[in-house]
Amino acid sequence: MEGFLTVAQVAARHGVHTGSVYRWLDDPEVPLTKHKTRNGRVWISEAESEAWLAARSTPVVVEVSAASPVLTGAPS
């Protein structure tokens, strides 16, 4: 199917196990749609997969003050 990937292909692109992709498909917080064929094969939109890969790869920056116990080693 053009424009769609198998679970194995999505797993390879994300560097994870296929079981992780199946868990993502069952998680309502993950924006991936499962497209199932009559024979039970699961396909995932390539565009959705790429968008999810970009979202997962975006670092989260947390601002920490210079006086933070994390930086100074002081007990909190």
Rank of each mutant, 00 (worst) to 15 (best):
M1A: 15
E2F: 12
F4R: 11
T6M: 05
T6F: 06
T6Y: 07
A8Y: 09
Q9P: 14
V10H: 01
V10A: 12
A12P: 01
A12R: 15
R13K: 15
R13Y: 04
G15S: 10
G15N: 09
G15V: 03
V16Y: 04
H17M: 04
T18F: 00
G19C: 02
S20R: 13
S20Q: 10
S20G: 00
V21P: 00
V21D: 00
Y22E: 02
Y22C: 02
Y22K: 05
R23I: 00
R23S: 04
R23D: 02
W24V: 00
L25A: 00
L25T: 02
L25V: 02
D27Q: 05
D27C: 08
D27S: 13
P28H: 02
P28M: 06
E29L: 06
V30C: 04
P31R: 12
L32V: 07
T33R: 11
H35N: 10
T37N: 04
N39M: 06
V42Y: 06
V42A: 02
W43K: 10
I44L: 10
I44P: 00
I44G: 01
S45M: 01
E46D: 15
A47E: 15
E48K: 01
S49F: 05
A51V: 10
A51W: 03
L53A: 15
L53P: 00
A54K: 14
A54H: 09
A55P: 04
A55Q: 14
T58M: 14
T58E: 14
P59G: 12
P59I: 06
V60D: 08
V61H: 14
V62C: 07
V62Q: 11
S65V: 09
A66Q: 13
A67V: 09
V70D: 04
V70E: 07
T72C: 08
T72V: 08
T72W: 10
G73D: 08
G73P: 03
G73Y: 09
A74M: 06
A74L: 10
P75T: 10
S76I: 08
S76C: 05
